[in-house]
Design a protein around this nucleic acid. Structure first.
Length: 473
DNA sequence: TCTGGGGTCCTTCAACGT
DNA sequence: TCTGACGTTGAAGGACCC
């Protein structure tokens, strides 16, 4: 999908169409998740500190991400892909590989193009958003093709033309070559893909190690082929928080670690997993990051056990000077727990109460949208609940209807009243505690057809390929 | 007002068992 | 009994991706 989060926001908010939109963390330490193409013209790009983005594009709309909405759109798109082939490998919410051959698509250029174009049309019809398709003989090439196709295009790399195409490209084009590897290669005098091929496998392995060097060499020769894997097992679950201000108070650090452990276990359980290795992550005031881990005798999904392990690990970490980030993770996942194996009876009596009591001290209401970043809600502090309205979130006003938060502060919240299907709407300002104003769910970007078949093309042979692969037989 | 969050994979080193 | 080779595991860190 093209500039996925930003495009979704533009589709949801008519007044933002054609405007610079930046989605990401809005706090003092936020970074850009996605910038619309209009914002990119100002030099704003993913992973850029939000402060820098605001300096470059002061008039852009800055919005908090709404993962619930993106997930829904993603599922629609993945559904279209699965109609194309049983072999669909999602890479993220907005990207996936599809093995067209496994879907019975004829192995010729015209057929592939036809499928790709129909897919793009179907995605547009179902989600209202544009997608780009890369077609090639391997995942790596399909990915490069899709990058070249953006925005809103299709690119096919014909068999036999791969090396000529890749040769002059920067090594950074290859997936897996980031800033560090790029630098490493540059110091060795290698800046293009062709130069990787010329250097030879031994030299690449010497420079980058067996795995990385070997795969990069294969990529440069366009010989890097890995199958599309539909079902990937999750290997770890983790949660982490960056704090607006460094935490110095050791007691507070302990408290945060306990909270993170609980949140991690919630996620672990929701995924139906347990895990054996507990990992604590600490990023200190100077951005140095360290991890400490401990492997238990057996897998657990007990919040108390994870919390205690995380607390033990914290004892070996010096936090004087302050910490900016804390995280707790679990790896070595299993789908049973040590506790399952015995003491089930005892657990029924005691442990179930424990589980309830601890995960949400603030009550059970969190279940619906736990910890969604930027959600409207109370800080976990004592005292009266002050509602915070994050920019971009949906709201409903009893009198004016559906809208979204344009901004808030000084006890006021500004709302623009519009919906995906409406004209750009009017803006009104309310007190943050206005009883007529409440958080709302996102509206669908496209009017649901309701009666299937009314829209002719949809469902014909939809799918979407951000990368796809046709493994040569 | 530099640098998020949630992942994956790889490398290195140490400890341990055979 | 000592030593070395080798495989496996665990711990820690780094690079990369979206």
């Amino acid at each position: 999908m093209d500039a996925f989060y930003a495009s979704a926001e533009q589709a949801a908010k008519p007044s933002l169409r054609g405007k610079a939109v930046v989605v990401g963390g809005l706090g003092p330490r936020g970074v850009v998740a996605t910038a619309s193409y209009e914002a990119r013209r100002f030099g704003v790009h993913s992973a850029m500190p939000m402060g820098q983005a605001r300096r470059l594009a002061p008039n852009a709309a800055y919005l908090v991400p709404r993962f619930g909405l993106y997930r829904e759109i993603s599922e629609q798109v993945m559904g279209l892909l699965r109609e194309l082939s049983p072999l669909v490998e999602p890479l993220s919410l907005d990207e996936a590989f599809v093995d067209l051959e496994a879907g019975g698509v004829a192995d010729d250029e015209a057929s592939a193009r036809a499928v790709g174009e129909r897919l793009r049309a179907d995605i547009k019809a179902v989600t209202g958003l544009t997608a780009s398709v890369g077609l090639a003989a391997s995942k790596m090439l399909a990915k490069i093709a899709s990058e070249e196709a953006k925005p809103d295009g299709l690119r096919l790399i014909a068999p036999g033309t791969e090396r000529a195409l890749l040769g002059p490209m920067s090594v950074r084009t290859l997936p897996g070559v980031g800033p560090a590897t790029g630098d490493h290669l540059r110091r060795a005098g290698i800046t293009t893909v062709e130069e990787i091929a010329e250097a030879g496998e031994d030299e690449l392995v010497r420079l980058l190690g067996k795995a990385h060097g070997g795969s990069l060499y294969a990529m440069a020769l366009a010989r890097y082929e890995r199958p599309v894997v539909a079902e990937r097992d999750t290997k770890s679950v983790s949660v982490e928080d960056t704090y607006d201000v460094d935490i110095h108070d050791r007691v507070r650090v302990r408290g945060e670690v306990a909270r993170l452990a609980d949140r991690c276990v919630q996620r672990l359980r929701a995924a139906g997993h347990s895990g054996r290795t507990i990992v604590l992550k600490v990023r200190r005031f100077d951005f140095s990051t360290l991890t400490r881990s401990e492997t238990l005798r057996g897998p657990t999904d007990d919040p108390g056990v994870v919390r205690e392990a995380a607390a033990r690990l914290l004892e070996s970490v010096d936090t004087t000077g302050g910490v900016r980030l804390l995280g707790v993770g679990v790896t070595g996942l299993a789908d049973y727990t040590q506790e399952d194996l015995f003491a089930q009876a005892a657990a029924d009596a005691g442990a179930s109460g424990e589980v309830q009591a601890e995960s949400d001290a603030g009550g059970e209401a969190e279940g619906a949208s736990p910890g969604e970043p930027g959600e409207v809600g109370a800080e976990e502090s004592a005292g009266p609940v002050e509602r915070r309205w994050a920019a971009g979130l949906d709201v409903r006003h009893a009198e004016f209807g559906h809208g979204w938060v344009q901004g808030s502060g000084l006890g006021r919240v500004t709302v623009r009243f519009e919906t995906p299907g409406s004209e750009p709407g009017r803006v009104r300002t309310f007190r943050t505690d206005d009883p007529l104003l409440e958080p709302a769910e996102p509206l669908p970007l496209v009017e649901r057809p309701g009666r299937a078949g009314e829209l002719p093309a949809v469902g014909e042979a939809p799918s979407r390929v951000e990368g796809e692969e046709v493994v040569p037989g």
